[in-house]
Design a protein around this nucleic acid. Sequence first.
DNA 1: CGAGCTAAAAAGAATGTTCGTTTTTTATTG
DNA 2: CAATAAAAAACGAACATTCTTTTTAGCTCG
Lengths: 205, 205
Amino acid sequence: MPKVTAEYRDARRHEIARAALRLFAQKGFQATSMADIIAESGLSAGAIYGHYKSKDELIHHAISDILQFRLDAVGSLDADSPVDPGELLRRFVTAMGEEVGDLGLLLQVWAQAALDPSSREATDSVGAHLRRVFESYLTDWYARGLRMPGPDAARDATLFAPLYVGLVQGYVIQNAIFDSFDREAYFAAASALRPAQAVNMSAGD
Amino acid sequence: MPKVTAEYRDARRHEIARAALRLFAQKGFQATSMADIIAESGLSAGAIYGHYKSKDELIHHAISDILQFRLDAVGSLDADSPVDPGELLRRFVTAMGEEVGDLGLLLQVWAQAALDPSSREATDSVGAHLRRVFESYLTDWYARGLRMPGPDAARDATLFAPLYVGLVQGYVIQNAIFDSFDREAYFAAASALRPAQAVNMSAGD
DNA sequence: CGAGCTAAAAAGAATGTTCGTTTTTTATTG
DNA sequence: CAATAAAAAACGAACATTCTTTTTAGCTCG
């Protein structure tokens, strides 16, 4: 009885997915053909279909594969390390860039998520995660009173977290499609941005 | 000498492009077949190929067609109408939604722009335009001293405009792919966001 | 007429997937 | 250790679709 380690299979699946993602970043999901992936992976058609039932399954696996980057380490600022929001933004996009390889790939993923509900689940969970990380960071940041007398730091953090998520997304887009995009200026502006004191709206519910 | 007016031809081209865009928003560019477009437009294959040389040409035309929305009217706040940035953000995305039809279409366009340089030209010019509109608005806004003693309103406006563009893009993305997205909270947070006084960085050059 | 259109067919190319075969890997046996 | 059996993995040509585009013939109307 030949024994096949499950790790080997997973490694190969991952390998195929990475090869596919390289192409997806260049040509998008639909324009990347199986023949392309076969060539890029260095395997054969049969081999790939032994690991993935279909192109769709490969796409889905590749998406959830690439979206599992570890952002927790970035968001946890310990005790006395005064990282302003702009700096946090820089660390996030830098970390994402390293994990994803090409940030432009995220545009393809978002576009796919807008069309395919099952891909949306993956992006949703990442979005929620990113929002939570920002929330916990902002709660800390506001609570330190470095800013104005926020009566309720946690409440403010909940309100502003989606905005910072939006700034991350805006960075990714502008970085990908605006030929002259000044990254440092973007970070600097984000650092200088602070919430005003009074937020007298119950927009949440 | 054209027997029928050139306007008629243009109108028909526009009509075809609009029909195609409806499908592009639902299925993306590549997954939309010519047969789909033929059916949606109500015309025949021959008619469409009489107006467009190829599917690629149709896609390009449709993209630059949909990106020509008129945002100037929104950005020009006259004299004494105190519209805070969050409110401006709302007006922008509302206006864009009306012109584009489905905001999710922008995700497809951005993804396409990331892949195809010739599409990028169109998105670039729109991005530059949007940035300029925000710049002129922010210059006004800061100059009124409603905020802190900005020594140079125009300089601040130049710095922060890309950030607001990013917030617009973030809104579009979250609106399209996050199942539970609180639009009003996003606007409210944007209204409460102000730049801090001192921006001691020469990040531009 | 001639320009725009229809409806249908078909050319020609590209796509995703399958399947019989071959190679590689692993465990067992003499 | 060498030989062997068996199963998994990989190959790659072939297949069936699907797609874009072109072509055909016939219709309508200023």
